[in-house]
C-alpha cells in the first residue's frame, strides 16, 4: 500500500519541487520556528530552522494515545519541510507543502491479559495545502505515520474566518473549526472549534473539542 501511494506521490513531488518560501510549517529564511499542539491524546512539540526560503530541518517529539487509552506511542523524529508550490495572488496566498520525518517510535498496547511494548522505526511523509486571505482560512493535510504493522495516518481539515480585518501590528482574532482523525488510535473524527490569535510575533489557538477536552496550539518564529 505504501509502495502504491509512493508511486503516485513521488512523481508529483518531483514535478512540483521548485519555488521559494514561508507561511505554514516553517518560518522565513534563516529563522527558527517553534510549534506546539497539545490535547489529551495528541501532544506534539516541534522546532525547525529554515536553511533556505523553502527548506527547513527540525526535530519533533510526539505523544499519541488511543481514545480508550489502551494504546500509547512516543515518537522522536527528524523532520524535513519543503515548500512545493506557492501561489501569490493580490489578496490571497495558497501553499502546497511537503513534510516528512523519520524517527524512533516507542509503543505500548494494553491488550486484555497481556501488555505489549515495542520499539520501531517510523516514517512520516505528508502533504499540506492551505489557502488564506486576510479574512478566510482553509487548510487540508494528510500525513502518513507508518512503521511495520503500525498505521497512524493523520488527516486534518481546518477552515475559519477572522472577526475583522486588522493592521499588521495589531492582534487579529479568528474562529477556526478543525476536523481530524488519527488512524488506529481513534475511530472518531475529532471536531474542535478554536479561537486563534495572530500577531506578527506569535500565533496561538485554544479550544475545546466536542468531548469537552481542551486543546492548545502555538507557533513562534525567531
Amino acid at each position: 500500500m505504501i509502495y502504491n501511494r509512493c508511486k503516485v506521490l513521488l512523481p508529483l513531488l518531483t514535478m512540483l519541487l521548485s519555488q521559494p518560501t514561508t507561511a505554514g510549517p516553517m518560518g522565513f529564511d534563516e529563522s527558527f520556528m517553534a510549534m506546539g499542539d497539545f490535547n489529551n491524546n495528541w501532544r506534539e512539540s516541534f522546532i525547525n530552522y529554515a536553511i533556505t526560503p523553502g527548506d527547513a530541518f527540525g526535530i519533533s517529539a510526539t505523544y499519541m494515545r488511543a481514545d480508550d487509552k489502551t494504546k500509547s506511542r512516543t515518537l522522536e523524529e527528524i523532520i524535513y519541510t519543503h515548500l512545493l508550490r506557492r501561489w501569490n495572488m493580490p489578496h490571497a496566498q495558497a501553499n502546497l507543502w511537503f513534510q516528512g520525518g523519520i524517527g524512533t517510535l516507542q509503543g505500548k498496547d494494553e491488550d486484555i491479559g497481556k501488555d505489549h511494548d515495542f520499539d520501531k522505526i517510523m516514517v512520516t511523509p505528508g502533504v499540506q495545502f492551505d489557502y488564506e486571505t486576510t479574512r478566510i482560512y482553509f487548510q487540508v493535510s494528510h500525513r502518513l505515520y507508518r512503521a511495520s504493522d503500525i498505521n497512524h495516518d493523520y488527516t486534518s481539515v481546518r477552515a475559519g474566518f477572522s472577526f475583522y480585518e486588522s493592521d499588521y501590528d495589531k492582534t487579529q482574532p479568528w474562529l477556526i473549526l478543525e476536523a481530524r482523525n488519527m488512524n488506529g488510535l481513534s475511530d472518531k473524527i475529532e471536531i474542535t472549534p478554536m479561537l486563534r490569535l495572530i500577531d506578527k510575533s506569535f500565533f496561538v489557538e485554544a479550544g475545546m473539542n466536542t468531548d469537552y477536552k481542551p486543546r492548545f496550539n502555538f507557533m513562534f518564529i525567531f
Binding site: T22, N88, H91, Q93, E132, T134, K170, S201
Partner: peptide, 16 residues
C-alpha cells in the same frame, strides 16, 4: 506586494 495576507507570516519582510 501580492500574497501578503498574514502578519505572522509577513514578519520576515520587516525583520530582513
Amino acid at each position: 506586494v501580492n500574497g501578503m495576507v498574514c502578519a505572522f507570516c509577513a514578519q520576515g519582510i520587516e525583520k530582513k
